[in-house]
Design a protein around this nucleic acid. Structure first.
Length: 103
DNA sequence: ATAAGGGCACCGC
DNA sequence: CGCGGTGCCCTTA
């Protein structure tokens, strides 16, 4: 973990988000050791080639809005709902209840 | 090496 | 609640 670069840690942590839960770009950035690099997290996730192996769709905006996704927002919403996350419009209902904070 | 910009956050209105 | 401006950092060109 320590020997991986920021991008590596972000992806690794991303894989740890349990099904039925989501986290935010900010929380993920902090968990990866760069509290203010939340913007870079998006850049890293979009480069993820194996959505199969890395559930990057479980990372959303802290506002509750689902945020963007390399395969399209529609797709992201579908995947989230498939996990049991309530999405209304483009926003997650009661985000606090499904938030995973790596604790 | 350097500049540009994005899967964002936060604040004011 | 939404839109716009500003800040921030890493990755990508």
């Amino acid at each position: 973990m320590e020997r991986l670069n920021f991008a590596g840690r972000v992806l690794l942590l991303c894989k740890k988000i349990p099904k039925g839960k989501v986290t935010t770009y900010k929380i993920l950035a902090e968990a990866a050791g760069r509290k203010n690099a939340y913007r870079a997290v998006g850049t890293i996730l979009k480069k993820n080639k194996n959505p199969k192996d890395i559930p990057c769709y479980r990372v959303v905006k802290s506002s509750g809005h689902v945020g963007n996704y390399s395969l399209g927002i529609r797709k992201k919403i579908k995947l989230l709902r498939r996990d049991g996350i309530p999405v209304v419009g483009e926003k997650i209902k009661n985000l606090e209840r499904f938030l995973f904070t790596f604790r």
